[in-house]
Amino acid sequence: MRSVRSEHLIYWVVLVAIFAVLTIDIRWSADSLGEPLRLTGYLLYGVMFLLAFLNVRKRLSMIPLGRASFWLLLHSLGGVFAIALYWLHAPILWPSGVYEQAIAALVYGVTATGMFGYVIQRVYPARLTQTGLEVIYERIPGEIARIRSDAEAMVIDCTTTTGSDTLARHYFETFDWYFRRPRFAFSYLFGGQRGLQWVHQQWHTVGRYLSAQESAFLDRLTELGYEKTRLDVHYALQSAMKSWLLVHVPLSAALLVMATWHLILVHVYAL
C-alpha cells in the first residue's frame, strides 16, 4: 500500500489546520452569543454536498471541472473533515432519538464504507498487477468459461489418447468444481493464495496414479488451474473494488435526504 502521497501532505496539513481553527472558534463561539451548531451544521451540510459532487463530477467528465483525482482528494479530505465536523456538531457519539440515530448510523456507515474503499483502492491495484495478468472485469466469466472448455476438451483428449479415465474421474470430482466459477474470493480479499495451494494439492493428489503420458496432461491442466487462479484473484479484487460503492453510494443518497430533512426540522423548530 502506498502511504499518503507526499504531494498531498500539504492538503492534510491544511485540513488539520482548518479543523483546529474551526474547533477553537466554535468553542469560543459557544461561549459567546454565536451559534456554533448552525455554523457546524451548515458547514457539514455543505461538505456533504461537496462530497456528493464527486459523483456528479464523474458524470460531467465532458466539461473541464478539474481533475477527478483532485476531486477524489477533496472527497477523501472532505470525508475525514465531515466526520470530525459531525462530532463537533453532534454532542454525543450515539443520539437518543430514532431519527437522529438513523442519521448517525448513515454518517458512520458512509464514513466506514468510504474508508474501507479508500484502503482497498490503495491496496488491491498492486495485488492485481502482481498476478501478471490483466483482464477486463466483464470478460472474466468468459475467460473462465474458455479455460473450462479448454480443460474439459483436454481431459477428454487425455482419456481418448491414453485410454485411462483416472484423470477424467479426478477432474470431474475436483477440478470441475474449481473451473465452474470464481472460487476462494475471501482468501484473495485478505491476501491469501488459496487457489494456488488448492491446484497444487490436486496435482499432487492425482499425480501418483498417472502414467507419464497422463502426467503431461495433468501438468497442462494444472497450468490452466493456475491461470484460473489469477483470474479468480482479479475477479475477487475487482469485485470488491466495485462492490463497496454498492453500499457507500446508496447510504450517501439516503444521508443527503435525511440531512436535508434534519435541516428543515431545525429551521422550523429552532431557528
Binding site: R2, K58, S61, P125, L128, I136, Y137, M241
Partner: peptide, 18 residues
C-alpha cells in the same frame, strides 16, 4: 499505472460521454 488503477473504467466512461 496498474499499481494505481482500480479498474473503475471512469476513463472509458469519460471518453464515451465526450
Amino acid at each position: 499505472d496498474l499499481d494505481r488503477c482500480v479498474r473503475c473504467d471512469d476513463c472509458v466512461r469519460a471518453c464515451a460521454s465526450t
